[in-house]
Amino acid sequence: MNPAFIDQWFPDELQDNYIYKLITPRRVGLTRCRAEYFVRLWAYLLLKQQELSGRLRKPLSQLTIPKGFVPCTNREAAELFYANKDRGSDRAAGMMIDILVDLGLIDKLFDGNTICIRIRPVAHLTSSNPLAEAIQFQVDGFNPRTDAVIVANFLARNYNWMSNTSNYIPFKITKLLRSWAHQYPSSMRVLRRCDTSAPVGFYMLYPTASESEEKFFLPPINSLYLSSSSTIDPLKMATPGNPDCTSVLVRSWMIDTPYITHQNVCRFLEDLQQTLVGMEADFPNLWDLYAMTIHPSYQELSMAIGFQKIGDQTNSSVSWLYTSVDQFLNLAMEKAISKLEFRCHGAESRLTG
C-alpha cells in the first residue's frame, strides 16, 4: 500500500465526515489538522493490514479498527500527512505520531528497530468499545520475557513532555524492567487482559537502599532516571534481608487507557497492598512509602489513598509523595476511591518515578 494513494482508497468526503465527528464536540488539544492526520493514518493502517492479509479488494466505505499493531515508518507517515501540502520531514511526522499518542488516539511500539502503531477505539466513531465488552482482567506477576516491551511503551508516555528522544525511552525502560525483574521480581505486577494476556497496567514497589533515602528529601527532578540520558540510577535497590531498608518507592503505577475503571483501579491498589505485606518478610523494618507524581491531574488519586506532598513544591508537576506503610496497609481502597471519577479516553492514571 502506497501512502500517496490513500485518497483513492478512502475518498476525501469520507475522510471529512470522520474528521468532523472526531472534533465534535471540541476536544482539548485535538485540532482539525491533527484529526485529519489521525483519520488518514487510521485508514492507511487498515488498508495496509488488509493488503498484508490478501484482503485488499476495493476502496473503504467506513473505518474499522485494525487488529493489533501495524508497522508504519515515519517516512510512510510523512507521505500520509503531507501529501497535499508543503513536504514535511520524517522527523515532523514522527513528532506528530507522538502527539497522537499523547491525545490517546493511538498506541506506539518501538523495539529499537521497528515502529508499530495501534489505533485506539473512539467511542462515537466505532461500533465496538473495549469497555462495553465483557473483558475480564487479572492481576499477575510481571513476565520480563513477554511483558517488558508492551509495558515500556505505555510507561514511556509519562516522559514525552520531558524528552525529545521519545523513541529511546521505551528501549531504556525495557532494559531496566528486565534488570529489575532479575533483582527483585516479586514486587513487579501487571494488570492483564484474560482474553489476550496483554498487560494493560503495571506497578513496581522498589525497596530503596538506606544510602539512597536522602534522595526523597532532595528535589525530585534529580531522581527522574527513566527520562534522562544518565546510565546511573540515583536510587539504589536494597538487597532482600537487609534490616536497614526502611523505605519503599512506588517506582511506577499506571493503568493504560481505555482500561481505567473503578474496579480495575481498586483491584490494582489492593494487590499493591498485598505485595507490600509480602515484602515485609524480606524487609522487616519497612516504615515509609514514597511515590512521585509528574502531573497535577493525578494528585486527586494520590491524595485519596493517603499520600501527601513533601519537600520543595516549587515545581508543581513533579513532587515527592509520602505516606507511612502502616497507614497505607490499613486503608480500605474501595471506600477511599469511591468518590473519584476516572476518564477512559485520553488520560491514564499513573504515579511514577
Rank of each mutant, 00 (worst) to 15 (best):
Y168L: 13
I169P: 08
P170E: 10
F171K: 04
F171S: 08
T174C: 10
K175Q: 10
S179G: 10
S179A: 08
Y184S: 05
Y184E: 14
M188W: 08
R189D: 08
R189T: 06
L191V: 11
R192A: 12
R192D: 12
C194T: 11
T196E: 15
S197L: 08
G201H: 12
Y203F: 10
M204I: 03
L205P: 03
L205W: 05
Y206W: 05
Y206L: 07
T208Y: 03
A209S: 12
E211K: 09
S212G: 06
L218T: 01
P219R: 08
I221D: 15
S223V: 00
L226R: 15
S227L: 05
S228N: 13
S228D: 13
S229V: 00
S230C: 11
K236G: 07
M237D: 13
G241L: 09
G241T: 09
N242M: 12
P243G: 00
T246V: 13
L249Y: 08
L249M: 04
V250S: 03
S252G: 06
M254S: 00
T257K: 12
P258D: 01
I260R: 02
T261W: 00
H262N: 01
Q263L: 13
N264P: 11
V265N: 06
C266R: 10
C266E: 09
R267M: 11
F268V: 03
F268D: 01
E270N: 10
E270M: 05
D271R: 09
D271H: 10
D271G: 04
L272R: 11
L272M: 14
Q274H: 08
Q274P: 05
T275V: 04
L276E: 00
L286M: 03
D288P: 02
D288V: 03
L289H: 02
I294S: 07
